[in-house]
Design a binder for these strands. Structure first.
Length: 418
RNA sequence: GUGGCUAUAGCUCAGUAGGCAGAGCACCAGAUUGUGGAUCUGGGUGUCGCGGGUUCAAGUCCCGCUAGCCACCCCA
């Protein structure tokens, strides 16, 4: 008789178990605290959005084509699980009337995002991000501000050894001319590029710059750099951002090959990597300016800047660094009834909970066994209850670290435990 | 989506030329004469990922599937 297969978690998703929660809490609380320190307010937006919202901002990219969780709901609406937060936050900014208030709106958000990727370590189909967005202002001060916020967060959670890469990709005014230059440079080399890059050349030439295929590398060095061809406004913005970062004492590397594939990204782009990393896959946080996003969604043209930080990778790094997080027992006090005393034990626990976290061991085990598990759980106190005690509404309180025991009435427990 | 590696106890893994499934840790029970940690004793807790095939015999060989990991694609 074949047993039925137990049902396991869906591919690419995972549970965050209690043992890992202290680390996650530290990462998240650190983020919220830094966010608030910078004057950002928390927002929660739905995990579900109209697929069209995502498609509009993702265009016909590969990513949307094969990595979006998309489905029709029972009412025939075409929905998607959000693959990133910014599109939804910008939508909420308008729908919630935040565009009517003082600008910019400074917002932060935590939550799960979804991508139908092939899973591997640090890359899950459901992953968690910390997002920060400043919407409604084109001031360069905000570009630097969100970068500083990201940096503060990573430092706060114990990640000191970081590399910040920075670039500017211009805007709708100067980028087209630059792209022509770039194409003009690469056209004669086309036959020497690898297949995908030959296609990128006309379709998405910025992508040529972050190609990783060896055969395409030699041509990058002499390729025109966008930062040499910015319009006056973008050049001034770029200069201010850099000056502000220097003023903040934040080190960065100008990476002229750091780009974004979509048109609504403008000017500043940046990514934080852990110190040792060389791969493209280990960015801890990445962001930039998206002055064209609101318009792409069909709202009034509105500038914005922000970043997304990956909680999965950050917590993983924290764990790898042996980041110390205080672990506390699930309950300070454990009530051990010795005999059939569930009702009495529950009452005693209720009394103790006034001052300390308290649990009851209801298992039909020997007292020795119960003491053993109390010890393993790390209980600070144990309240022993025998039938005779219960009848007199007394109990024996044992301090697990000193081994001292005292008999006392139930009503005295709160003062003795406090 | 592509290529590669892996899958044995709760965990880390061993398992030799196919021949009754193992270790350490963990866990459970007991003793130390009704109360934990140290020590001792006892207990294997297993659909060998799933499904087929070859064979007298498959954890071991072959095929398919699933899952994890690595590198790509991609990362909106």
């Amino acid at each position: 008789m074949a047993r039925t297969e137990p049902i396991k978690a869906v591919r690419g998703v995972r549970d965050i178990l209690p043992a890992e929660m202290p680390l996650w809490r530290a990462a998240q609380q650190g983020a919220a605290e830094v966010g608030r320190r910078f004057g950002y307010e928390e927002i929660i937006t739905p995990i579900l959005e109209h697929a069209e919202l995502i498609e509009r901002v993702g265009e016909d990219t590969d990513a949307v084509a094969k990595e979006l969780y998309r489905f029709d709901d029972r009412g025939g609406r075409n929905l998607a699980l959000r693959p990133e937060a910014t599109a939804g936050v910008v939508r909420a900014y308008f729908e919630g009337g935040l565009n009517q208030g003082p600008q910019p709106s400074r917002l932060y958000l935590f939550g799960p995002m979804f991508r139908y990727d092939r899973p591997q370590k640090g890359r899950y189909r459901q992953f968690f991000q910390f997002n920060v967005e400043a919407i409604g202002s084109a001031a360069a001060g905000l570009d630097a501000e969100v970068i500083e916020l990201a940096s503060e967060w990573l430092h706060q959670v114990g990640l000191q050894d970081l590399r910040l890469e920075l670039n500017s990709i211009g805007d709708g005014k100067c980028r087209p001319a630059y792209l022509e230059r770039l194409k003009a440079y690469y056209r004669p080399l086309k036959s020497q590029l690898h297949g995908d890059c030959q296609l990128r050349l006309e379709r998405n030439p910025l992508r040529l710059l972050d190609c990783k295929v060896p055969q395409c590398q030699p041509f990058k060095a002499d390729a025109p750099r966008i930062t040499d061809h910015l319009c006056d406004e973008c050049a001034a913005h770029w200069a201010v951002v850099r000056r502000l970062l220097e003023g903040a004492g934040i080190e960065y590397q100008h990476n002229p090959y750091l780009v974004r594939g979509l048109d609504y990204y403008t000017r500043t782009v940046f990514e934080f990597y852990p110190g040792g990393a060389k791969g493209q896959q280990d960015a801890l946080a990445s962001g930039g300016r998206y002055d064209g996003l609101a318009e792409a969604e069909g709202w009034p043209s509105t500038p914005g800047v922000g970043f997304a930080g990956g909680l999965d990778r950050v917590t993983e790094l924290m764990a790898a660094k042996g980041e110390e997080v205080a672990i506390s027992p699930p309950a300070d006090v454990l009530v051990l009834p010795d005999g059939d005393l569930a009702v009495e034990a529950a009452e005693v626990a209720r009394i103790c909970r006034a001052v300390r976290s308290t649990a009851v061991d209801y298992e039909p085990k020997s007292l020795t066994a119960k003491m053993r598990s109390a010890n393993k759980l790390g209980a600070k106190f144990v309240v022993l209850l025998t039938p005779e005690d219960a009848a007199r509404r007394t109990a024996r309180l044992r301090d697990m670290s000193s081994g001292e025991q005292t008999d006392l009435a139930w009503v005295e427990l709160p003062t003795r435990l406090a």
